[in-house]
Design a protein around this nucleic acid. Structure first.
Lengths: 137, 137
DNA sequence: TTGCGTGCAAAGGTTTTGCATGGCA
DNA sequence: TGCCATGCAAAACCTTTGCACGCAA
């Protein structure tokens, strides 16, 4: 755990443990707050945000921007598993979030860097569009 | 102008005219409000949001989600120019927005549809990462 | 005249911040 | 003991909504 400087606290450990226990799952701050309330071990809103920000800084979790007006999502991404290099597609109609594992996109990552000098953080990027069902329906 | 049903008003015309006069430029609602205040022809916040929403519905402009907490951006996209099919990269460090015209990405669009059934709305998608300068600096 | 568009103000939701308290080392 | 983390409440933002008034047709 590189860069960890401060103290270790209950809120901190339980938050990170929960995120790690649900790899690839997107949680909003509100959902996390509710989860720990249900567990009988509530964590204050401010603390949740502060810890999430720290985790992001330390690289433990990813923060996702799904849309303006919608709240931010946070998720632990297993560095060893395939999901570390997968992509997210969000259907603008039904709102579903699709996880995609795709080599072609990985190629694009290379292309963006080599031809445009842009180091793409694919974990953070969300592709907007229409999913298969909504497109046909 | 398909689908236009209501009245034509000053606010409506000036807003759309301004957006069309700055194709490809991203404006936030606050920036637009300030612009018209500076012009001496202020438009109420609610009206700005309502008109922008209408323009998006009618397909005149695009709405961009840059990040949660940041405000939404709106821009007129010239349907005839190349910028109708260009892509956006946002540097997470310096915050700059890069407009990219790239055939490889257009290929990806095809790939996503054919292999994953996902109809990607590239105009709305923002690639997060590090720009050339920030990557080297 | 009819009814849509406007503007103000208030509400709604998410995220941040100030400050005193509590807990880790 | 010293300092960081917590939690509450308040603030800060962006955006939406209610409502009365004004303007387009």
């Amino acid at each position: 755990m590189a860069g960890k400087t401060g103290y270790r606290t209950r809120a901190q450990e339980e938050l990170l443990a929960y995120l790690k226990a649900t790899p690839g799952v997107h949680h909003t701050a509100a959902e996390l707050k509710e989860h720990f309330e249900d567990e009988g071990a509530p964590i204050g809103t401010a603390t949740i945000y502060r810890q999430l920000e720290r985790f992001v800084d330390e690289g433990h979790i990813q923060k996702y921007f799904i849309g303006t007006g919608e709240s931010a999502c946070y998720a632990f991404v297993d560095p060893s598993a395939a999901c570390s290099s997968h992509f997210h597609c969000k259907c603008e109609q039904c709102g579903s979030l699709i996880h995609l594992d795709c080599d072609e996109l990985r190629e694009i990552q290379k292309h963006l860097l080599e031809h445009h000098g842009f180091l793409w953080n694919s974990g953070k990027t969300v592709f907007y569009g229409l999913c298969d069902q909504c497109r046909k329906g």
